[in-house]
Simulated scan of single mutants.
Amino acid sequence: MTELNQRYIVQQCKTNAGEKELPVFAKAMRSKEGVFEGVSFIRNRDKASIMTLAEAQEAVAWAKKKKPLAGLYETSIIPAG
Rank of each mutant, 00 (worst) to 15 (best):
A63P: 02
F41Y: 05
N5P: 05
Y8I: 01
K20E: 15
I50S: 10
E55K: 03
K20C: 11
E58T: 11
T75A: 10
A59M: 03
A56V: 01
Y73E: 06
T75R: 09
P23I: 03
Y8D: 01
K47H: 07
V35H: 08
Q12D: 15
K64P: 00
F36H: 03
F41M: 04
I9F: 06
A80H: 04
N5E: 15
K20Q: 15
V24N: 10
Q11V: 04
M29R: 13
V39H: 06
P79W: 11
P23R: 06
S31R: 12
Y73N: 14
Q12H: 15
E19Y: 04
K32V: 09
G81W: 06
E37K: 14
T75H: 15
I77K: 02
I77D: 06
E19W: 10
G18L: 07
S40E: 13
A28G: 07
E74I: 01
E37R: 04
A28R: 09
A61G: 02
Q6G: 05
T15Q: 13
P79F: 08
Q57D: 06
A28C: 04
A63V: 03
G34A: 12
V35K: 04
Q11W: 00
P23T: 03
M1V: 08
Y8S: 04
E58F: 10
V24K: 14
K66W: 12
K67M: 13
G38C: 03
P79R: 10
T15K: 10
A17Q: 14
Q12V: 07
I78W: 07
A56S: 03
M51F: 03
P68Y: 06
A63Y: 15
V35W: 07
E55G: 01
E3H: 07
A26M: 12
Q6M: 14
Q11S: 09
I77Q: 05
V60I: 06
S49C: 05
I77S: 02
C13R: 15
F36S: 02
K47P: 08
A54Q: 09
T2K: 14
E33K: 11
S76I: 07
A54K: 13
A28N: 09
G71H: 06
L53R: 05
P68E: 05
I78Y: 05
G18N: 03
N16S: 14
E3K: 11
P23K: 04
K65D: 14
E55T: 00
M51E: 00
V60S: 01
Y73D: 11
K32Y: 12
K14I: 13
R45S: 04
